[in-house]
Design a protein around this nucleic acid. Structure first.
Length: 330
DNA sequence: GGTAGACCTGGACGC
DNA sequence: GCGTCCAGGTCTACC
């Protein structure tokens, strides 16, 4: 079986850094808590390959990416690049150090890298499927999108892959879907036409967007925010969330979870709108790392309820990790 | 510029 | 098993 050894930062801890944001629980990602392995089908120019990424020698050692099938040199490079994006293996050490200097609470644990998707498009769709729904619906929508529109990869011959080997649908595949079919088969509800339109924009079929420009670090935050908020289904919350997934942490995606956090942990009082204003002011001193400080506080709360995220089973704890649901747990 | 109501789904709850 | 209520962010119409 082909194996890749991507460049791995000296402080990298797969358990900590992969299980750091809810998207690691969404299809087609699959974290196996027993083996501490991330399973994930990835699309390349040579087809879809099922990968599994582990850190067999423990934190701080080189990751190993096992690949089912026979990828050529180009496909291997594409797989390594996608895993690097998902796990933020290329995040400069100085950036993390700057974050830990600004917010020393996370220096001892080394936290700061937040999981994301292999492509900006997948992060955008995952964000849209997380709006105006409870987390279990987000889980269902992503699983169905993969089952219905993802291309199958080669299943492993001997290894037991925990889940489906279908990848996440491409922009092109979603641009060709019929809204009614998306609604009926993927349970995306009123998001149907918006998702198809996003597929068209990212496939650059109609009013196409320039993903390279969006992802270019020299593009100003405000310009990125304005471009994102122009997209269908993307409002202030979604735009800010997509920005943090792009590594732009200055804006906070404020939602009902933020209000819950403001009230219960930070002892803020007032209407939801007033609390959101106070939340923005509260984290403003963390500047370009504001979201990381905010998110790690939230994540800490979730883990205080149900143990370290790397132990969460996708189909049990992983379906109920928002505070509203966790608070109902015994 | 601010606000009210519709949009959909799935889970919780009561009967 | 069925009906009702509720949570959730975006969008549009309206003031």
């Amino acid at each position: 079986m082909p194996t890749l050894r991507p460049h791995t930062p000296a402080d990298y801890d797969l358990r900590r850094d992969c299980c750091s944001y809810g998207y690691f629980l969404l299809a087609p990602n699959s974290w196996d808590p027993r083996t501490c392995t991330l399973w994930r089908p990835l699309r390349t120019s040579e087809g879809v390959f099922l990968t599994h990424t582990a850190q067999p020698r423990g934190p701080g050692t080189t990751l190993r990416i096992g690949i089912t099938g026979r990828p050529g040199a180009a496909a291997r490079r594409e797989i390594a690049a996608q895993i690097t994006r998902m796990l933020r293996l290329d995040e400069p050490h100085e950036t993390l150090r700057a974050f830990h200097t600004l917010d020393p609470r996370w220096a001892p644990s080394g936290r700061g890298r937040l999981f994301r998707s292999p492509t900006l498009f997948e992060d955008v769709i995952k964000t849209v499927t997380s709006c105006n729904v409870t987390w279990p619906s987000t889980v269902t929508m992503n699983r169905r999108l993969c089952d219905v529109l993802g291309r199958p990869g080669q299943p492993p011959a001997r290894l037991k892959a925990p889940l489906s080997v279908r990848d996440f649908p491409t922009a092109s595949a979603l641009s060709r879907a019929r809204p009614a079919s998306l609604r009926a088969r993927c349970r995306v509800g009123y998001r149907d036409a918006r998702i198809v339109e996003l597929g068209k924009r990212f496939a650059r079929l109609k009013g196409g967007i320039d993903a390279a420009w969006l992802e270019n670090p020299s593009t100003p935050d405000d310009a990125v925010f304005d471009a994102l908020i122009d997209l269908p289904g993307i409002g202030p919350y979604a735009a800010a969330n997509i920005m943090q997934l792009m590594g732009r942490y200055r804006r906070l995606p404020l939602d009902t979870e933020s209000v819950r956090h403001g009230r219960s942990i930070l002892n803020m009082r007032g209407t939801p709108a007033a609390i959101m204003k106070r939340m923005a002011a509260h984290y403003a001193p963390f500047g370009e790392h504001a979201f990381r400080s905010y998110w790690l506080e939230l994540w800490d709360f979730y883990e205080s309820k149900h143990g370290p995220a790397w132990t969460w089973e996708r189909d049990t704890t992983g379906r109920m990790f928002t505070a509203a649901l966790l608070n109902k747990q015994p």
